Structures are given as structure tokens and as C-alpha cells.
Computed example of a mutant assay.
Amino acid sequence: MTTRTGSARYDGLGKDGKGRVSTQSGVLNDSPYGFGTRFENEPGTNPEELIAAAHASCFTMALSFALAKAGYSDGTLETSAKITLDQKDGGFVITKSELDLKASVPGVDADQFADIAADAKANCPVSKVLNAEVSLTHTLNG
């Protein structure tokens, strides 16, 4: 079993509050977040972009391992994720994660690739934890 940690601190309340977020690895270390970074493009991070990065990296790694298991040994996978945050019932909810994959895997059949990618999308741990629509578009360069 693997356990990873992150932490957050918020000083002040509501729009006037300022937060700091850190990760166990130290990649994020007291990185700023708050209303301005979430809704107004101020410098810093926000939960949705962290989820987008987590989903893109999780899916890409799952696909990489699935392609290796299928016998492929070379290639490049580049994924972006777009998280949608909507207002609902007086609050906010993440409704969608759109994965967009650009791939180059020499020798892979397009149909086989699509099947392997769809399975990776459905079964990467971050896809499974999201209670939202998860979509995938991909471009395969032979």
C-alpha cells in the first residue's frame, strides 16, 4: 500500500482569506492559493488545477504501463486535463474532467490503441475517485 500526503492552511475567511498548500514530496511547499487563484487568475494554485495535473499524470502513467504490457517499448504520451467546476445547489461541484492525449507509439494499431487508452482512462485511480464525467480524446501519430 502507498500513502501520500498533502496539507493546506487558510488564514482568514472567505474571499479575504489566503491559503498555502504543500505536498509530502516538497514539490509544493507553502504554495499560495485562495479565491484570487481559484477564480481570478492571481499567481498561485487551486484545487482544480491540482486535480487536473493529478488526473493527467495518473492516466498517462496507466496508459504507459498498459502499452508496455501489450508489448510496446517506445513512444511518447502527452496528456492535458481540463477540470470543469460548476455551481450547483448553492455550492460548487466538479462535473467533468476532459483528458486530451497526443501520442506517438510506433507500430501500434489505431483500434488497439483506442481500446488500451479507454481502459487506462476508466481504470486509473484518479478517474475512479472522481465523481464526474471523464472523457478522453486522443491523437495517435504513427
Rank of each mutant, 00 (worst) to 15 (best):
Leu67Trp: 09
Ala103His: 00
Ala81Tyr: 06
Thr60Gly: 03
Glu98Ile: 01
Ile83His: 09
Ala70Met: 07
Cys58Pro: 04
Leu99Glu: 01
Asp30Lys: 04
Ile83Cys: 03
Thr79Asn: 03
Gln112Arg: 14
Lys121Cys: 00
Thr84Lys: 11
Gln87Val: 14
Ala56Phe: 03
Ala66Phe: 01
Asn41Ile: 11
Pro106Ser: 12
Lys82Gly: 01
Ser64Thr: 10
Asp115Met: 09
His55Pro: 03
Asp89Ile: 11
Val27Pro: 03
Ala62Trp: 00
Thr60Tyr: 00
Leu63Pro: 00
Glu40Gly: 03
Arg38Tyr: 08
Ser57Cys: 08
Ser57Phe: 00
Ser31Cys: 13
Cys58Val: 01
Gly107Pro: 05
Ile116Gly: 05
Arg38Cys: 09
Leu50Asp: 00
Ser57Val: 02
Val27Ala: 15
Phe92Val: 09
Leu63Met: 10
Val105Lys: 01
Pro106Glu: 07
Ala110Lys: 13
Thr37Cys: 10
Lys88Met: 12
Val108Gly: 04
Ser31Ile: 14
Pro106Asp: 02
Lys69His: 10
Thr84Arg: 13
Ala54Asn: 00
Asn29Asp: 15
Asp119His: 15
His55Met: 03
Thr79Arg: 00
Gly90Lys: 05
Thr84Glu: 07
Leu77Gln: 06
Phe113Thr: 10
Asp109Leu: 07
Gly71Glu: 06
Thr79Asp: 03
Thr79Leu: 01
Ser31Tyr: 14
Leu101Ala: 02
Ala68Trp: 02
Ser57Asp: 02
Lys96Gly: 12
Lys82Leu: 10
Ala56Lys: 02
Ser97Glu: 07
Ser80Met: 08
Gly91Phe: 05
Ser104Ala: 12
Phe92His: 11
Ser64Ala: 10
Ala70Gln: 11
Gly107Leu: 08
Thr95Pro: 02
Ala120Thr: 02
Thr84Ala: 11
Lys102Gly: 11
Pro32Cys: 04
Asp30Glu: 15
His55Cys: 08
Ala117Met: 01
Ala81Gln: 01
Ala70Trp: 03
Val108Met: 04
Leu67Thr: 06
Asp86Ala: 13
Gly71Pro: 06
Leu99Cys: 12
Ser31Asn: 11
Asp119Pro: 03
Gln112Ser: 13
Ser73Pro: 02
Val27Tyr: 14
Ala53Asn: 12
Asp111Val: 15
Ala117Cys: 11
Phe39Trp: 01
Phe92Thr: 06
Ser73Asn: 13
Ala68Phe: 12
Phe59Asn: 03
Asp109Gln: 04
Thr79Glu: 07
Lys121Arg: 13
Asp111Ser: 13
Thr60Gln: 07
Gln112Cys: 12
Asn46Gly: 06
Ala52Cys: 00
Phe35Gly: 03
Ser31Trp: 14
Lys102Asn: 06
Asp109Met: 02
Arg38Gly: 12
Ala53Glu: 01
Leu77Gly: 08
Lys82Asp: 07
Ile51Ser: 06
Lys69Asn: 10
Phe113Ala: 10
Asp86Phe: 11
Leu85Ile: 10
Phe39Asn: 06
Glu49Phe: 03
Met61Asp: 05
Tyr33Trp: 14
Ala66His: 04
Thr95Gln: 05
Ile83Tyr: 09
Lys96Gln: 15
Ser80Gln: 11
Pro106Trp: 07
Phe92Lys: 07
Cys58Glu: 00
Glu48Ala: 05
Asn46Val: 01
Glu78Val: 09
Ser31Thr: 14
Asp100Asn: 15
Ser104Leu: 09
Asp109Cys: 10
Ala53Met: 07
Lys82Gln: 13
Ser73Arg: 13
Ala70Val: 11
Pro47Met: 08
Asp89Asn: 14
Leu63Ala: 08
